[in-house]
Design a protein around this nucleic acid. Structure first.
Lengths: 199, 199
DNA sequence: GACTAACCGGAACCTCGTCCCATTTACTAT
DNA sequence: ATAGTAAATGGGACGAGGTTCCGGTTAGTC
């Protein structure tokens, strides 16, 4: 008669599953807070042990909650990514031209990437280990980008020579290394890229 | 060959210093050959031990000849980079319009980068360790790029809204991850970027 | 042929990612 | 309240890779 509440054998803590026990939930939050802090100072590739130390847990606990580094990064930035996804339609509604909305939205995304040390690099990495991260960003933002592109295309403001995911990948790529002191602002480059969409 | 051994730093074993003893010269060449082969199969971040094994030397020998990985990469690709640098003026002379020359030259550079696994990533890395590599590529190619940009600008074919080094960095960034199976061809993106230079 | 200094290469050390396992702890039924 | 149980924990072990040290080896010279 032991309770069979959730006898899910496999770990259900994938990306979204909140742990059931209170201590696990607490630890999960502590890890998220610590990771967010460490990412700011040491970048998204900071050693796991550093995050564990700051969270006051062992390294295994981090791996239990977030099997890969990509899962941890997704969890830390999920809210921000979601808010950018929602900002797309809002900009489309509030801006004069769809092309301007696209430009403003891309600017938001660039601002996001340049403040996250190493995030852009990791987003373009061909390391299989980061596929979940890659996938989440694309799955969440590509539809929005496609919507903006489509709106600008029907208005004749741009020629649709690029797929939405290509544009996102390009913008992400241009933001790599933007936090170097010697590496300048990626915004001029992004501006040229967006200008290249015009007919 | 190289006569510009002028004002590098005190460390003159850095890029070009040929060893004096015959065995050292032989080992240096063996390392270069092995590295070139390994870079093709395992990318420019292949383990040092792998290169050493293929060259039939110890790891310390590699570090003695090429203190950093950047030095090794520069030595392996120096000839190709130099040939691309020389291709710039040639294209300018043989092509109808400077803008077309610029486009053809950029295409050459993209072809070079996409065939070198991980080279583009390393070129944009903010790891201090790769600064010599970064520096060599920029120092060699930026002037050529500037020449092409300038020629196209005086012809009124483009607006000079971008510095040469910015353009090179942008093209390099767009080529990151181009060797992934899922990551597509960077050429459409580069084409849009170049199109964005037009007035 | 002997001497010297440059050179060599394997081994050792360090960092980091990853996983195992003995121990602890939160929840539930009695 | 309490005992039982499964979930959760964290320290440490293991492996991969970068970097350096050190005793042995060898090319070039007298």
């Amino acid at each position: 008669m032991t309770t069979d509440m959730g006898n899910v054998t496999s770990n259900d803590r994938g990306s979204e599953g909140e742990p059931k026990r209170a201590d696990a939930r607490r630890n999960r939050q502590a890890i998220l807070d610590a990771a967010a802090a460490v990412f700011v100072t040491s970048g998204v590739n900071a050693p796991i042990r550093e995050i564990a130390a700051k969270a006051g847990t062992g390294t295994a606990t981090i791996y239990r909650h977030f099997p890969t580094r990509a899962d941890l990064i997704v969890a830390v930035y999920r809210h921000q990514v979601d808010s950018y996804a929602e900002a797309g339609p809002a900009l489309l509604a509030s801006t004069a031209s769809p092309y301007e909305a696209l430009r403003a939205w891309i600017d938001l995304f660039v601002d996001f990437l340049v403040t996250k040390h190493g995030l852009a690099s990791v987003l373009q990495s061909d390391d299989q280990r980061f596929d979940p991260l890659h996938e989440y960003f694309l799955e969440r933002l590509v539809p929005v980008c496609g919507q903006l592109l489509e709106a600008a295309a029907v208005g004749g403001e741009i020629r649709c020579t690029l797929e939405p995911h290509e544009l996102m990948r390009g913008v992400g790529s241009l933001c790599i290394g933007a936090d170097r002191t010697s590496g300048g602002d990626p915004r001029p480059l992004v501006a040229v890229l967006i200008a290249g969409l015009r007919p």
